[in-house]
């Protein structure tokens, strides 16, 4: 699959409950919890746009917006 380029990682701090799922499974450690236990993107430049954080977030608080089309597959 063609490499995707990240446009924006939109994280809705009002919806995030700080469960840590996205952080634990991000393959490139892009995400962390801030001091209020809300998810933030600390290394967006490392994002490979696999979109697994978006798909696994139980609070629908993350949206991975790429330059064009779909993200890669990093589930396996």
């Amino acid at each position: 699959m063609a490499k995707q380029k990240l446009k924006e990682l939109v994280i809705n701090g009002d919806w995030c409950k700080g469960c840590g799922i996205c952080i634990k499974f991000c393959p490139t450690q892009v995400l962390e919890l801030d001091r209020q236990d809300r998810c933030i993107a600390v290394r967006p430049e490392d994002c490979i746009c696999c979109k697994m954080c978006e798909l696994r977030c139980p609070d629908l608080a993350i949206e991975v917006i790429t330059e064009k089309g779909e993200g890669g597959d990093h589930e396996k």
């Binding site: 009002d14 919806w15 409950k17 469960c19 798909l55 696994r56 977030c57 139980p58 609070d59 629908l60």
Partner: peptide
């Protein structure tokens, strides 16, 4: 109705997301 009522980390939110996708 968001943020939803489910506990932090509840799987039901992930099922909702998969279904909407």
């Amino acid at each position: 109705f968001f943020p939803h009522i489910w506990c932090p980390g509840c799987g039901h939110g992930i099922v909702l997301s998969s279904l909407l996708h």
